[in-house]
Design a protein around this nucleic acid. Structure first.
Length: 861
RNA sequence: GGGCGCAUAGCUCAGUUGGUUAGAGCAGCUGCCUUACAAGCAGCAGGCCGUUGGUUCGAGUCCGACUGCGCCCACCA
């Protein structure tokens, strides 16, 4: 391992301080992240009471995805607060989890290994994945083999993620690491589900659900994404008994065979005569009623629509409210059912579409319509918005399936009102993000569908008894004993049954589904805080203090945790939600893999270093999107370098001096200004406004370097027994100590490095600076006076294009009397910094600003 | 269509409860090797504060309208 210390010979000062000859940033990350790990710097140590804890519900990253620079920013935002709270003396409960269960992992495994899960296959203990994965011809493997691959790949992915977070310098306690597929997390998810079930909040329902035909699973409202999708309007004729035609328009003619009615608006005079009569569908010859419903829009298409089970959510409404028959023709694989349904009259026509994909079925249906002259004109192209599963690439179908739901207020006004009230009760940073929550909750249109017809996830702790015919009794599910969790109903028999009774009449079957990953991650506070397993920890950490996340998951993760906690604990899971913005590309578009505008974090970390990247992250205020710009990273790196070099100056060749030695007016003035900075930074952090804390510290630091440090440089070089030199040294050391601690949350590596030169212990366990540490009695205004004088002298030299060391023959300082009095008291330092060899006079003027007439010693320019 | 946010220097952003001449960093320009730092330092220049009405002695700031941009939601006949 290389480190800054190894790269140059340390100079040992009279104090024993170890200041390197030429400090560098390279190597600090590896050195200190290892050191922190070895020393348990960020370990949570249980204190006596809740008020000594600051607990954070860190988002568990989806390990099957990739981390981009936006993640680095938002996780840094959390770490800034964590580090601040730790320095304020809190025991920071800062766990991190990996969200490794669920469909995203399965999808990654499928693509990575070129396999797919085929539950009917037997386990192959000697299975090895294909050497050359062919994503188009995925090899079918057993469920157990598939799950093994999921574990294998997430293990690899998680190591990559951990390495990145260590490199960024997150001060998480890695001993608290959890994963959402772990037995512990599964037990929590199953236990919480059983509680919901016992209270009637979790229920099984056979209903139309949004269905992804690629992944062959139901998906929840929160996972939907509306996208533009090209389609065609088709005008087709239905027929009244007397042969007259009724024209409808549809973008989904392939669903003609699933048509159960025509629907028009009750006030639509064109169709009022038809209400209560029947018409016959073209091609399939099915007699369907013409009905009225207020959701029909007279100006859409021909004003009368065919209602199919199911083309869209409006169809579901009509089907439910008009009591229409369920005429399903699309199967779970997205293909038209092979068996001809009993309502079809022209069975030969149905055979033309049976087994086809929706796309092929559409072509076949249109062809038949054409042949029979029932298509009017050509299909007209249109772009419509269609619901997709956010990770899928085919439009969702609506299929009637039996699924588990958890109540979330989507169908219960009372619960909805309670959950809206929770949103009001929660503190939000930034404040306006509470609207997004309220907006989402108010717009829910159904309960939370948590079951997925997938394999890598938490199984439902549920079995169903089989009757004497071997049919499952879904109305009387058998629940697992809480003491037995986690359970797998696929391999463990139901309580009171023997494994031999599985699938037998009078026996049982296990629930085949798994919970969606959000159903588990909605319980991260419960998983992390030891819910019902570690009561002491639970009391110390829950409700948590802070829930950080980016604004895109307010509707999912944030809301779902509120639901679970509200149902289980009747309180919020945390006191405050903090929301980070996105890193967007320079055109302010969201970064996404498909757009190819994603910035890989390791590249910028390599290029600028973690402290610089963190600095840039800290400059993005809560909730604010910020465009990615490499030039900004350079500024952070410059600050890190400056901290290194300024610290070297303060500590090099100097000996430690007690703060009692500080008496010079400019030393006291600088510290008085720093007092204000400390107060401001503290107030800002208390409000979670880390950017403001950084800005005041940074602004002061540059003034400290450019003005104060230059001003006292010469004096500080004085001999050990010179009180004036001692005053400067003590002030420099005190100011450095305070500033290193102000910067520690932002730049953990460089501040720790410098701290190690002259202090014992970690700066990250040091106390956050207090105004009490800084002497009173200084006049901060003097610092501004000094800046004005320096600016005038430097300006004169710059205009004359001479070096800054050029001597000044005469300087006349004009200004208000009180400022002149202050400046007179530090004449010696002023002469030194300005190289004033001749006269330095102070002349009171009426102006309230300081002005200096400068006469340079030589005038060769 | 509903909600939220944003609009200030070429770029990224500050601008407290309304109060002198609107600030910073980056980029640009002019200089300077200065014993912590040339990956540095000093200086200079750069603005109809989106448009438009109002409130006020006074508006970047408060109110209304408009325009543009972004995000979330809704939108499948």
């Amino acid at each position: 391992m290389t480190s800054a210390l190894d790269q140059s010979l340390p100079a040992t000062s009279p104090s024993g301080w170890q200041v390197p000859g030429s400090p560098v940033l390279e190597g600090l990350e590896a050195k200190w992240s290892q050191h922190w790990q070895d020393s348990g710097t960020y370990a949570f140590r249980r204190p006596a009471s809740r008020d000594q804890v600051f607990s954070i519900d860190t988002p568990p990253p989806t390990v099957s995805g990739s981390l981009h620079v936006g993640h680095v920013f938002s996780y840094t935002h959390t770490d800034l607060v964590a580090r601040y709270q730790r320095m304020r003396g809190k025991q920071v409960f800062y766990p991190l989890g990996w969200d490794d269960n669920g469909l995203p992992t399965e999808r990654r495994v499928q693509n990575h290994y070129g396999v797919r899960c085929e539950p009917s296959l037997p386990y192959d203990p000697g299975f090895t994945p294909p050497t050359k994965p062919d994503p188009k011809r995925q090899q079918p493997i057993s469920r157990r083999n598939f799950v093994e691959l999921c574990h294998e790949l997430t293990g690899v992915d998680e190591q990559v993620f951990e390495d990145l977070w260590r490199r960024v310098g997150l001060s998480v306690d890695w001993d608290l690491l959890y994963t959402t597929i772990s037995p512990q997390a599964q037990a929590v998810a199953q236990r919480a589900f059983l509680h919901n079930h016992a209270r009637g909040e979790a229920y099984l329902s056979l209903a139309p659900t949004m269905w992804d035909v690629t992944f062959q699973t139901a998906v929840a409202q929160a996972e939907l994404e509306a996208r533009e999708y090209p389609g065609f309007y088709h005008s087709i004729n239905f027929h009244r008994p007397d042969g007259t035609e009724v024209l409808i328009e549809t973008t989904r003619p392939e669903l003609l065979a699933a048509c159960g009615a025509l629907v028009a608006h009750p006030d639509d005079e064109r169709y009022q005569p038809l209400f209560g009569t029947t018409v016959t569908t073209p091609v399939f010859g099915v007699e369907v009623p013409v009905l009225a419903h207020p959701d029909a829009e007279p100006d859409k298409g021909s004003g009368i629509a065919m209602c199919c089970t199911f083309g869209d959510l409006t169809d579901v409404t009509w089907w439910r409210e008009l009591g229409l028959p369920t005429r399903t023709i699309i199967g779970r694989d997205g293909r038209v059912l092979r068996e001809t349904p009993d309502w079809i009259v022209d069975t030969a026509a149905y055979e033309q579409i049976a087994g086809k994909t929706t796309f092929s079925a559409r072509e076949a249906t249109v062809e038949m319509l054409r042949e029979r002259g029932e298509m009017i004109g050509e299909p007209k192209p249109t772009i419509r918005m269609t619901n997709f599963y956010e990770r899928g690439d085919k439009p969702l179908e609506i299929v009637s399936t039996r699924q588990w739901y958890i109540t979330n207020g989507g169908r219960d006004p009372k619960l909805r009102a309670e959950l809206l009230a929770r949103g009001e009760e929660l503190a939000w940073t930034p404040e306006h993000m509470r609207h997004r929550y309220a907006n989402w909750v108010a717009g829910l249109n159904g309960d939370w569908l948590i079951s997925r017809q997938r394999f890598f996830g938490v199984p439902f702790p549920i079995w169903y008894p089989l009757d004497s015919d071997g049919e499952p009794d879904y109305d009387h599910p058998i629940t697992a004993d809480e003491a037995s969790l986690p359970v797998d109903p696929a391999s463990q028999p139901a309580p009171g049954f023997d494994e031999s009774q599985r699938g037998q009449p009078g026996g049982f079957i296990g629930d085949p589904d798994v919970m969606d990953t959000w159903a588990t991650s909605s319980l991260t506070p419960q998983i992390a805080c030891g819910w019902q397993t570690d009561e002491r920890l639970w009391k110390l950490t829950f409700p948590m203090d802070m829930a950080p996340q980016a604004h895109d998951i307010i509707r999912t993760w944030l809301f779902s945790r509120v639901v679970r906690s509200h149902l289980e604990e009747h309180e919020l899971p945390w006191r405050r939600a903090t929301i980070s913005g996105f890193v967007v590309d320079p055109d302010r578009k969201k970064m996404s893999k498909s757009k190819g505008n994603v910035v890989v974090p390791t590249e910028i970390l390599d290029k600028f270093g973690a402290d610089a990247v963190r600095w840039r992250a800290a400059m993005a205020r809560p909730g604010m999107d910020s465009p990615f710009d490499e030039t900004q990273m350079k500024v952070g790196r410059r600050l890190a370098m400056k901290i290194l070099n300024a610290s070297k100056f303060v500590l090099d060749k100097h000996f430690p001096v007690d703060p009692e030695a500080i008496y010079e007016p400019d030393d006291l003035a600088m510290l008085a200004a720093l007092r204000v900075v400390v107060a401001q930074a503290t107030a800002a952090f208390d409000e979670f406004q880390y950017t403001d804390a950084l800005e005041v510290a940074e602004k002061f630091f540059w003034t400290f370097c450019d003005d104060y440090l230059e001003l006292v440089k010469e004096r500080s070089y004085g001999p050990e027994d010179d009180p004036a030199a001692a005053s400067a040294k003590a002030a420099l050391q005190l100011a450095l100590s305070v500033q290193l601690r102000l910067f520690a949350p932002f730049m953990p590596f460089v501040t720790e490095e410098v701290w190690s030169w002259w202090q014992s212990g970690s700066v990250h366990q040091a106390a956050w600076p207090s105004t009490d540490e800084l002497p009173t009695g200084g006049d901060a205004a003097l610092l501004d006076d000094i800046a004005a004088v320096l600016m005038a002298i430097r300006g004169a030299k710059s205009r004359a294009q001479v070096k800054m060391r050029a001597e000044v023959a005469k300087a006349v300082v004009n200004g208000p009397q009180n400022a002149l009095d202050r400046l007179r008291s530090i004449s010696k330092d002023l002469r030194a910094v300005g190289r004033i060899t001749g006269e330095l006079v102070f002349v009171p003027s009426g102006a309230d600003q300081i002005d200096v007439e400068v006469t340079l010693a030589t005038s060769e320019a």
